[in-house]
């Protein structure tokens, strides 16, 4: 089980949280102008990387607030957590080069 640092509450067990998938997907500003390909891509297609993943979690059994997590999906190591709207923390080359 993961130990996750909520940016508001501090370290808590993963069982308090709910994973909500890839982060930083922006809703299109002009949905009516999108064709099927663009709309499907926005809704369903994901990076699903083996390695560093930027994802959203919500502290569902705690403060109920959303935040972002940088986690390596090959090792489950959490590099950083940060609030929505905060600048994305930079990872060192070593961190981004972690073996997938």
């Amino acid at each position: 089980m993961l130990l996750i640092k909520c940016p508001w509450c501090g370290y808590r067990d993963q069982s308090e949280f709910s994973a909500q998938g890839e982060a930083h997907i922006e809703r299109p500003e002009n949905p009516h102008d999108l064709d099927e390909e663009q709309w499907g891509d926005y809704l369903f297609f994901r990076k699903n990387p083996k390695g560093v993943h930027y994802e959203r979690w919500v502290h569902v059994h705690g403060c109920r607030r959303w935040f972002n997590v940088i986690r390596n999906t090959a090792t489950d190591h959490i590099h950083a957590t940060y609030r929505p709207g905060d600048p994305i923390p930079a990872l060192s080359d070593e961190e981004t080069d972690q073996p997938a």
Binding site: D41, F45, R46, K47, N48, P49, K50, T73, A100
Partner: peptide, 18 residues
Amino acid sequence: GHCSVLAEMAGFRLPIES
């Protein structure tokens, strides 16, 4: 499980999460 990794090698994404 690794289909997205292979798809990335080929230059496209899949509607899949692992």
